[in-house]
């Protein structure tokens, strides 16, 4: 029982973090980034390779994070920005093409075998009463997830973050008051890539990742973002955690075959029961 909750919070932290990455990019750049999990995967594989080559763990972690941020900025500058004047459709398709390409690049360079990013604490566990043990890596995921959520919230309180909110709320007005939308979208993509790298790295220090794992991670990230109405950071974070716990319970007590359906059901319920998550969303605020 407790074990299930902790496992749920662990995977929930991944969903929540990826959901936050999606929301950040959505807010500032108005792109639903389907390639978010793949970006994290590429960064993580870079870290894994470095660690395997004998680079100290923390340096490899740092390299992973930087790679994630750099990938984000590159994607924004090289691909996304020029498309924004053509409406939503090419943008959406571009992130899909990117997903395919990045995934295949990983497969080509690193192969399709599952890998992990072992941390010094991987495998260690904390005994708590009644013979129940909790993995240290699970605790790390949950704590980093919390820190990430707090940091992103704090980020939106900074001047850059405030400008980002202004852009999300009204693009034309933001332009008038002299906010540089280009710089903001680069920052948002960097932050998004950074968080994506954190997410997949957390996954890899506890479980295995492969070219197959982003497909479900991205969907759960989108579910979390949906639960926050694509605007609320808190809603996204709590939603992601809740989703993780629900998934674990469904997997443990019903069947892992219906986990995915349950996630879809959650999206459906959110859309039916909490429409204000959307109507208060930035799209309608452009009015």
């Amino acid at each position: 029982m407790l074990q299930t909750i902790v496992s749920g919070l662990e995977s929930g932290s991944w969903f929540a973090l990826l959901g936050l990455a999606i929301v950040v990019v959505m807010k500032a750049a108005d792109v639903p980034n389907f390639a978010m999990a793949e970006m994290g995967l590429v960064a993580t594989y870079v870290g894994i390779s470095l660690a395997a080559a004998g680079v100290p763990f923390w340096i490899a972690v740092l390299a992973t994070l930087i790679t994630g941020a750099v990938i984000g900025v590159l994607i924004d500058i090289a691909l996304m920005r020029r498309l924004s004047s053509y409406g939503h459709f090419p943008l959406l398709l571009m992130t899909i093409g990117l997903t395919l390409a990045l995934n295949a690049v990983v497969g080509l360079i690193w192969g399709h075998d599952p890998r992990s990013f072992p941390a010094p604490w991987t495998g260690a566990a904390v005994q708590i009463g009644g013979g129940v043990a909790i993995g240290v890596s699970q605790i790390v995921s949950i704590i980093v997830g919390l820190i990430g959520a707090v940091a992103i919230t704090a980020f939106f309180r900074t001047q850059v973050g405030a400008q980002m909110r202004a852009v999300a709320e009204n693009r034309s007005t933001a332009r008038l008051i002299g906010v540089s939308a280009g710089r903001l979208s680069a920052i948002a993509w960097a932050v998004g890539g950074f968080i994506a790298a954190v997410t997949v790295m957390l996954q890899a220090q506890s479980a295995l990742v492969s070219t197959l794992s982003p497909a479900s991670l991205i969907i759960y990230g989108f579910v979390a973002a949906t639960m926050g109405g694509f605007t609320s950071l808190l809603g996204t974070f709590v939603g992601g955690l809740a989703l993780g716990v629900i998934q674990q319970f469904v997997g443990a007590y019903i069947s892992s075959a219906v986990q995915f359906s349950v996630a879809l059901l959650v999206v459906f319920l959110v859309l039916i029961l909490r429409p204000e998550g959307f109507t208060k969303g930035m799209v309608l605020r452009d009015v």
Binding site: L79, M94, G97, L100, A101, A104, V105, L108
Partner: peptide
Amino acid sequence: GDQQAIAYGLVLMLAISVLPG
């Protein structure tokens, strides 16, 4: 295969970049 998938993704990305319409 991976090469084809990359090519597929790249063709798509290139097409969108060059001809957004």
